[in-house]
Every structure is written in structure tokens, then in C-alpha cells.
């Protein structure tokens, strides 16, 4: 198929009079770790919401691995291969850590509701397989020890990790992370960035990452797009973008 995992063309959305995202163009190659940065309120989360079908774009086009997914509902987009995390964590709080990840495996478990109610052999086989898969994912994020805890009882940093594990469980082609390090201390952040790198390499994943803090992304992102007031301010290789005077002013002016 195409060489690009994601191609966004002239993407726009307005809320009433506000053009929250205004003509965004972005190409992300397969296997790339790509950063979307910009000051608070620049429209980064709104971009994610359009990519994942939470909002319908006013205009523009989104292509995932050669497939047009513009304006499709969230479920279809997840099945097409995009999974995400949320800036304001959205876990299934009253479910166990393990069940959060197993919920992510929902569409990969091959037994019907009837088979589940009647406890036919496929139920046991698939549940076992899912549990093993989920435990593997939890191990990547060092959450396997807390598998039986309620998600709500995890400390903040681990909740963020659990969200990533749950998203990965859906076996996406493209993973969207919305400020994954928000609220973490520098040590946790450093460790998380390494985990993200590891996920990209070992799962052969394409990752688009939102970060509010520019310094964080410089470590791991290969390319960046900088948004400011809904518009693209700069785009390209990380070091070049970060040294761009326009970008520096935008951040200083914040």
C-alpha cells in the first residue's frame, strides 16, 4: 500500500466561530515516531479527536494506510487501525487493570455472547488466550503485579501506562498518545519515553505523540509538526523545527 501510515490533507474544524484547527497537512511514514506540539489550546487534542472520529472535520481528508477514514465513527476507525490515549485519562475505573486491557482485546476474542453464557469450550480457550496476551502487555509497562487491582486505585503515572497498554491491545497500526507524560516527574517521564521507544521498535508501531513540553519530544521524535492557534507553524525534522525562530517565539510568547 502506501508508504505513509497517515496522510492528513487540509484538515479543518470550527466550533461556532472558532477555527480550532485550520488547514492542517501532515504525513507520517510507517514506523515513524512523530510529534505534534504546540502551546496549550493550539488544537492538538482536537486533531486527535478528528483522527479518531470523536469529532467530524468541517473539511479536509484523513487517509490511514491508503484508506479514507474521514468522518467515520470511532469504532470503525479503531477497527481500521487507530488507537489512542486521552489527555484527561479515561480508564474503566471500576474494572480491574487486567480487564481494562482485556476490554481492549474485545474485537480479537472470537467467541459469541451465547458461547460466553453457555460457557462453551471456545469461551475458556479465548479467555485464556486473552488473559495471557493482556498479561504480556501489562508486563511491558510493569503493571503485571497490579493486574487484579481496580484501575481507579493505580497511581497517576501507572494509569497513563495502563491506557497505553489498553490501546495497544486493539492491535493498531497507528498509536496516538495525548500528553502521555503529563503529571509525571522527570524520572517517570524519562522512563516512559524509553518505553514508548521500545513499543515502537518491538511492536513495529507508528506513533503520533502530543507533547506540550518541547524538550521532551526532542529526545524521541524524529519529526515534528508545531501547531499554534490551530494553524501549522512549522514542520520537519525535530532539531530543525526546534531551532526555528518562529517556534521559539511562539513558545516564549506563551
Amino acid at each position: 500500500m502506501s508508504e505513509n501510515m497517515l496522510e492528513v490533507t487540509n484538515l479543518c474544524i470550527s466550533f461556532g466561530g472558532l477555527r480550532a484547527v485550520d488547514g492542517l497537512n501532515m504525513k507520517i511514514r510507517k514506523g515513524q515516531l512523530y510529534g505534534l506540539i504546540g502551546p496549550n489550546g493550539a488544537g492538538k487534542t482536537t486533531v486527535f479527536n478528528m483522527l479518531t472520529g470523536v469529532y467530524k472535520p468541517t473539511s479536509g481528508k484523513i487517509m490511514l494506510d491508503g484508506e479514507n477514514i474521514t468522518g467515520k465513527p470511532s469504532i470503525a476507525i479503531n477497527r481500521a487501525g487507530i488507537a489512542r490515549t486521552f489527555q484527561n485519562i479515561r480508564l474503566f475505573k471500576n474494572m480491574s487493570v487486567l480487564d481494562n486491557v482485556k476490554a481492549g482485546l474485545h474485537n480479537h476474542m472470537k467467541y459469541t455472547t451465547i458461547e460466553g453464557i453457555l460457557r462453551l469450550p471456545r469461551y475458556f480457550k479465548e479467555e485464556k488466550r486473552a488473559t495471557e496476551k493482556a498479561m504480556e502487555l501489562l508486563k511491558v509497562f510493569e503493571l503485571d503485579g497490579e493486574a487484579q487491582q481496580l484501575a481507579a486505585n493505580l497511581p497517576y503515572g501507572k494509569q497513563r501506562k495502563l491506557e497505553i497498554a489498553r490501546a495497544l491491545a486493539t492491535d493498531p497500526k497507528l498509536l496516538l498518545l495525548d500528553e502521555p507524560a503529563a503529571g509525571m516527574n522527570p524520572n517517570e517521564t524519562e522512563e516512559l519515553m524509553q518505553t514508548i521507544h521500545f513499543v515502537r521498535d518491538s511492536f513495529k508501531m507508528t506513533i503520533l505523540l502530543i507533547e506540550h513540553d518541547m524538550k521532551l519530544v526532542s529526545g524521541i521524535c524524529e519529526e515534528l509538526t508545531v501547531l499554534n492557534f490551530g494553524q501549522e507553524l512549522a514542520q520537519g525534522e525535530t532539531s530543525a523545527v526546534l531551532n526555528d525562530p518562529k517556534v521559539i517565539t511562539a513558545y516564549l510568547g506563551e
Binding site: V54, R90, M95, A103, N107, E127, R166
Partner: peptide, 24 residues
């Protein structure tokens, strides 16, 4: 079962449930 997990995930967070492909 997987169905029950889907139902509870909708209860706990509808948007997140949709984001992992659960048909609300």
C-alpha cells in the same frame, strides 16, 4: 465474559469504549 466487559466499559467510559472499537 467479553460481552460483560464491553458493557461495563461502556458504563465506565463511553468515549474510551468506542475508542477501543466497542459497539456502544
Amino acid at each position: 465474559s467479553r460481552t460483560g466487559r464491553a458493557i461495563m466499559s461502556i458504563r465506565d467510559n463511553r468515549i474510551a469504549a468506542q475508542s477501543i472499537g466497542i459497539d456502544v
